[in-house]
């Protein structure tokens, strides 16, 4: 939970600079975190398809959009319900760079990497099958 709060703190700081509505800042932060989690899931999905070659797991725009929306809606709801607890933890945290921020940076960079790399795996697997 501590690392989730740290990720939230950094996203909060980023979105606070571009949006004044506190509820929207929370939404944007939870949307971004959930979407990044979906990108990780997408990579696992791609590997699963590569291993099994089962057409049910083939890349399909519609199913990807549906699963991404499920991730975002679930993520935003779960994080909203824990809003108070996250905010309390965030207030106790230092704004200076700490070792956990490396994990936050890796989480963000890794998410974008997964977004591109999962598509490469899907394409290679679909050509081979």
């Amino acid at each position: 939970m501590k690392i989730v709060s740290r990720i939230f703190l950094r996203f909060y700081q980023f979105y606070n600079g571009i949006e004044e509505d506190e509820a929207m800042v929370f939404y944007f932060a939870s949307f971004a975190i959930s979407l990044l989690l979906f990108f990780y899931f997408h990579l696992i999905w791609a590997f699963f398809y590569k291993i099994t070659r089962n057409n049910a797991f083939e890349f399909n725009g519609f199913s990807s959009v549906v699963v991404a929306f499920i991730f975002v809606i679930t993520g935003a709801t779960v994080l909203w319900r824990r809003k108070k607890s996250i905010e309390t933890k965030m207030q106790k945290m230092t704004k200076h760079l700490v070792i956990e921020d490396v994990i936050v940076a890796l989480f963000v960079i890794g998410g974008f990497f997964c977004m591109f790399y999962s598509m490469v795996i899907f394409k290679i697997a679909s050509v081979q099958s």
Binding site: F59, G61, V65, M119, F122
Partner: peptide
């Protein structure tokens, strides 16, 4: 007005997901 603005902003951001999926489909 504030709630309708939030709804529109939230929906606008969410539309990036189909846009990303379209790019994936077109590349595939």
């Amino acid at each position: 007005v504030r709630w309708s603005s939030r709804l529109l902003k939230g929906a606008g951001t969410a539309f990036a997901i189909p846009a990303l999926a379209n790019i994936g489909v077109d590349w595939m």
